[in-house]
């Protein structure tokens, strides 16, 4: 493989915070400038990411099954209605607001599930250390990072609506337990993305011993 040489090959290690290039030291070393821990690769990156991804996947189930918001307005009666994410999308779609339905669908269903799949693919590839097109995969990873915070859109909407819509007897909105799970899913996927070390993608097995 004609890949550019890595820092580890040159016995060097970059500080992740201040960027100081240090001598390739044993793993528990510290940056002489900012005292940040130095690792040539993030420790236990794959297993941590897997763990967080699994946790996120588990929580994704109640996040979708349980209602995220309770709304009550004068026309819907005192019973009010509790919407899950998906029933909210359907409700908006049926009431004609297909644009809002699309936004919620993309932000709350499409992006999280895509994140799971992409992260899983990256993890599998990193484990196999037989990366076909590392540049493409790195692009995927960057997209994953960029899109991460937008997944919180749903949580934001619920928070806003709950705060704003408070007209006793006429119209009310309250968060429900589902949104908590959804928020946790988003946080866990972001942590998972953070825990993943994309540099593992171009660690060739022939040239480098595996790192957790």
């Amino acid at each position: 493989m004609n890949t550019p040489s890595r820092a580890a090959d040159a016995g060097l290690c970059g500080c992740p915070v201040c960027g100081l290039v240090c001598d390739g030291v044993a793993d528990p070393g510290r940056c002489p400038r900012c005292h940040c821990e130095l690792h040539s690769r993030k420790p236990e990156s794959l297993s941590r990411t897997w763990a967080l991804l699994t946790a996120a996947l588990i929580l994704y189930v109640p996040a979708n099954i349980l209602p995220v918001m309770y709304t009550q307005s004068i026309d819907s009666g005192s019973a009010g209605r509790e919407d899950t994410i998906f029933s909210g999308v359907i409700g908006f779609w049926q009431s004609g607001s297909w644009d809002i339905a699309a936004i919620i669908f993309i932000a709350s269903i499409l992006i999280p599930s895509t994140k799971f799949i992409v992260l899983a693919v990256l993890l599998v590839n990193a484990r196999r250390r037989r990366v076909r097109r590392p540049a493409l995969q790195a692009q995927l990873y960057r997209a994953l990072e960029a899109v991460g915070y937008w997944s919180m859109l749903d949580v934001l909407v619920v928070g806003l609506v709950t705060a704003v819509v408070k007209f006793r007897g006429v119209s009310e909105a309250e968060p429900r337990i589902g949104i908590l799970f959804f928020g946790m899913v988003v946080v866990l996927t972001m942590l998972g993305t953070l825990a993943f070390d994309p540099r593992l993608l171009w660690d060739s097995p022939s040239r480098h011993p595996p790192h957790g």
Partner: peptide
Amino acid sequence: SVVWVVPIVCALIGLSL
């Protein structure tokens, strides 16, 4: 890794639900 506690806790939460 200690980090596996996170999915276990999540699984427990889901199970309890």
